[in-house]
């Protein structure tokens, strides 16, 4: 009798498959085109269907990112840091899920996948700390030959299209997304074509981390199909080509020249876990220099 009960219990439960969806403007839409493609693990076993985004999804993501830019770039650096740290907290809570997804996607053992996920979470924390410090490192007061203040401060570039690395589906992804938004840009991320699931799951974390909708938008699908309209889009200010192969990178760079986008060319990365330095942050910063019209202060505390 007890054996029978056990058996029915085991067969009663239907599997609950997860529907992976895009993350655009703080919402989780399917692709406008209605298309999906099959995502497999490293051995070719089916994992899930992911949305196959079209250029219209890219366009919608740009609109969302542009809308979010004012609020996000205008938020205080301290506030951005808090939100980024909150993202790290939320990731920590879903650690097991990401370990599983990364292990499936990259064919890693559980312990190696766990090391990747830990490094990725630590990377968020690292960038969260940088939000209110980068201005001191790359900006500051300039000595000028006159009784004036002259200040240089780093400003975010705007809407940045990020072609995420193809091989490192989670650590690589976070290593390119976090520096873009830490400095106040908004991002449209083209997830790894072969293994987009960790990126799509990241959207679920971002949606519950006080990050305003539209600051990060995640698209999955054929990299070339999504990145090409983004590179040509007149309302995108910069593009990070980390995940583009040589031929595609060249095409995208040509398309990006049309409205003088900032382009970060793909650089070979041996180990995503190594300390990244601040280059990825400064790549999407512009320096604004202002002359303060007030001269040196008199005894009264004012020069007027």
């Amino acid at each position: 009798m007890s054996e029978k009960t056990e058996k029915t219990e085991r067969f009663d439960r239907l599997s609950v498959f997860k529907t992976y969806k895009l993350y655009v403007g703080g919402k989780f839409p399917r692709s406008e085109s209605g298309r999906v493609y099959e995502v497999t693990d490293s051995k070719g076993n089916w994992l899930a269907n992911a949305p196959l985004s079209s250029r219209k999804d890219a366009r919608d993501a740009v609109v969302a990112a542009r809308k979010a830019f004012g609020g996000w770039s205008g938020a205080t650096a301290y506030n951005r840091g808090q939100i980024l740290y909150r993202i790290a907290e939320m990731l920590e809570g879903r650690r097991e899920q990401y370990v599983r997804e990364v292990a499936d996607a990259e064919g890693l053992s559980k312990s190696k996948a766990a090391a990747q996920v830990d490094a990725a979470i630590d990377r968020w924390v690292w960038y969260a700390g940088w939000t209110d410090k980068i201005a001191q490192v790359v900006g500051g007061g300039n000595p000028v030959a006159g009784p004036y203040f002259n200040l240089s401060s780093p400003e975010p570039t705007g809407v940045v299209a990020v072609v995420a690395p193809q091989d490192s589906s989670f650590l690589g992804l976070i290593s390119v997304v976090a520096p873009v938004i830490a400095t106040g840009n908004t991002a449209i991320v083209v997830a790894s074509e072969k293994s987009p699931l960790p990126a799509l799951s990241l959207g679920e974390v971002l949606a519950t981390s006080d990050l305003p909708g539209g600051v990060v938008n995640v698209l999955s699908g054929r990299t070339a199909e999504i990145a090409t309209p983004l590179a040509a889009h007149q309302d995108v200010n910069a593009i990070d080509l980390a995940g583009a192969d040589e031929v595609l990178a060249k095409e995208l760079e040509i398309a990006a020249a049309d409205n003088l986008k900032r382009v970060l060319r793909p650089q070979p990365v041996d180990d995503w876990a190594a300390t990244p330095g601040i280059d990825r942050m400064t790549a999407f910063l512009e320096t604004k220099t202002v002359w303060h019209p007030t001269g040196s202060l008199g005894a009264s505390g004012s020069s007027y």
Binding site: V62, P229, H233, Q234, D235, D258
Partner: peptide
């Protein structure tokens, strides 16, 4: 033009 335009234009 075949390219998406933006509010800057």
């Amino acid at each position: 033009t075949g390219r998406y335009s933006g509010p800057d234009y």
